[in-house]
């Protein structure tokens, strides 16, 4: 299938902005609307654009699956730390009395890992579908 030149150049302009917006939504998840899932989905759409401009960023899927697996384990571990600091599972690991600025560290870290996990998962799904379709 041949893609037109106009579409290609428009996508080349669009690609950095879309990936930047995805990272913004992930990092600012606790202040503005959005969060890990939404930002990860936007990042996956940015990778989808690279298929139109024939950049071929995704080469081996096993690496992506490995990244997703470790991101999931990291999420569980970060959630589990609160057992030692607060005495209960799956909540903020910074003590209740501390200030808001420190509590945000937990939110940003967890949003970041959830974003990576969702983005890699969706990219894997899209790439397997595109490979099957050829």
């Amino acid at each position: 299938m041949k893609t037109s030149e106009i579409l290609k150049s428009m996508c080349k302009v669009l690609f950095p902005f879309v990936s930047m917006f995805g990272l913004y939504v992930i990092i600012n998840g606790h202040i503005s609307p959005g969060g890990g899932f939404q930002g990860g989905a936007i990042l996956a759409t940015a990778i989808l654009i690279t298929y139109i401009i024939e950049l071929d960023i995704v080469e081996n899927l096993t690496l992506l699956i490995r990244i997703e697996k470790y991101a999931f384990l990291t999420i569980i571990l970060i959630g589990g730390i609160s057992l030692f600091t607060r005495g209960e599972f799956f909540t903020n690991f910074i003590p209740i009395g501390s200030s808001i600025v420190y509590k945000r560290i937990f939110l940003i870290a967890l949003n970041f890992f959830i974003g990576i996990k969702v983005a890699t998962g969706l990219i894997t799904i899209i790439s397997t579908f595109i490979e099957e379709g050829e």
Binding site: V25, P33, G34, G35, F37, Q38, A41, I42, A44, T45, L48, L122, I125, I126, F129, I130, E132, G133
Partner: peptide, 26 residues
């Protein structure tokens, strides 16, 4: 519900149509 709107606009109007198009062209 801006959170839901963000999720819907990426999943519903970019990723799902792509998967449909690949399945139909096959």
């Amino acid at each position: 519900a801006p959170d839901l709107a963000l999720a819907e606009v990426t999943i519903g109007s970019a990723i799902v149509p792509l998967i449909f198009i690949i399945a139909i062209s096959k």
